[in-house]
Design a protein around this nucleic acid. Structure first.
Lengths: 252, 252
DNA sequence: TGGACATTCAAACGTATGTATTAATTTGTC
DNA sequence: GACAAATTAATACATACGTTTGAATGTCCA
């Protein structure tokens, strides 16, 4: 045991971190007080400020702790897959699965802290200010861009902008279903129990099928000319695009 | 002036409501105090409790105020479209557009209060407790089920459960893009400015294209047998409930 | 005008919050 | 065991919060 000079993190510190994840995840950042946390962690009030300087900083630490392993899992998985291709064209479904699976799995891993991640991520996205910090944004952006590039290789007929849009839709779908599935179970209720939102495998399969098909869809017909000339649709004049060229699947 | 007996709502009351929408929308529920609101509304502290009983109740009122017109717009638009079909099969793209457009439009309507709706809806979804209240849930559920039914008529090969999943993905994509597009502009930054998230028409077109294609995709190959026999890949022996159908009340 | 009601207002209450302070205690190293 | 550093503990502080109160003011109709 080489923990002579280099001390492993204080027990209290990790207990506080875990308690914070649990409590923040079940309520929200504002709804949980430092006292709640130290009480849950069986630590003294003041331990938070001692180990984490401030509550805000603790929040950042919590987010970092949860986000890192998922993004790393995604990236290593993507890298090994791409290496295995030897320059061949990647399979879209596989890419989507790699993107989606670590997140859904960890969110459904009972006992693990990952179950709190979707909710906390949504909170962090929604809350004001630069709470999430540039660190997380950069880390996520790097991963996102790598996936966009890979998807672009799987769908060479789509330009990059299109893929960025659809990547965002993918994240939205995933975040929404997983964030719901761990808490309010809106979809389960809405569907009268038809959709089993506790089944992680099922969620993944549904996501992969939907997103892959969406990604392969024909891009929208651009009406740049039209929009350039028309001054702006007055009031409610919702103008509908002529429905040209629908879903001629680009069958890669 | 017919406002003899039936008084229009107090000016203060509507000013408070509007100020609350503005402030909540820019920060969050917890981050905005009653004092902030009354100060912004140029009203006396105490006016909130007088007109709205409590802050929580004001929040509920805010959500109701924002949600109702959008859901109504969706429903009336859907109804007139379906009537115009005379029993014919509806067009999927049109349905998706009807579902998505009122939301995106109102969220991009500068000057209107709708620009605060996506953020507040996400907040309400994320925050703990039954903040949103059963009223909103029921209202939304009714609308959602009507769309699911209509989409089912457009895609007769998909069973209802599948459509429920994909409806949820649709809402997730929409919420995510619109919630982002009004604030943090993650996608615009991520894409290096390629995606113009201020262009409401563009957002709608991209959404319609992606979601329609996703909806039309083949449902995932169910591997029920496989999953039933394999015990579970070790690690955490989380047992999954056998997929017994608990169609308590069929959505009707 | 008068009186009844609705609304506004200033002030206060009680509580909960994050953090700072200071002392006590534990821990690691010689 | 002694000394210094790290950690824990108890308490205090200042502030911000939602709500309540009771009086003052405004509004409406007989």
């Amino acid at each position: 045991m080489g923990r002579k000079v280099i001390r492993s993190q204080s027990v209290t510190k990790t207990q506080i971190l875990e308690a914070a994840i649990r409590l923040f995840g079940n309520r929200s950042f504002d709804a949980v007080s430092v006292r709640d946390i130290t009480s849950e962690a069986k630590a003294n009030l003041g331990a938070v400020n001692y180990h984490f300087v401030s509550k805000l900083n603790l929040i950042r630490e919590v987010l970092k702790t949860l986000a890192s392993p998922i993004n790393e899992a995604r990236l290593t998985s993507l890298n090994t897959y791409e290496k295995s291709l030897n320059g061949g064209r990647p399979d879209l479904e596989t890419l989507i699965r790699i993107l989606v699976e670590p997140f859904v799995r960890s969110a459904k891993d009972r006992g693990g802290p990952g179950i709190y991640y979707p909710r906390l991520m949504m909170l962090a996205r929604t809350l004001p200010g630069e709470l999430i910090g540039s660190y997380l944004a950069e880390q996520h952006d790097a991963m996102a861009r790598q996936f966009v590039k890979a998807i672009g290789r799987a769908l060479p007929n789509l330009d990059e902008e299109e893929i960025f849009w659809r990547y965002d839709f993918t994240i939205g779908s995933t975040l929404n279903i997983v964030g719901d599935a761990n808490r309010s179970h809106r979809l389960k209720r809405l569907s009268g129990g038809q959709c089993d939102t506790d089944d992680a495998d099922r969620i993944i399969e549904e996501l992969v099928a939907f997103v892959s098909a969406g990604m392969r869809g024909a891009p929208p017909a651009r009406r740049l000319m039209a929009r350039a000339t028309e001054p702006k649709p007055a009031k409610n004049g919702e103008r509908r695009p002529a429905n040209r060229m629908r879903a001629k699947q680009a069958a890669q």
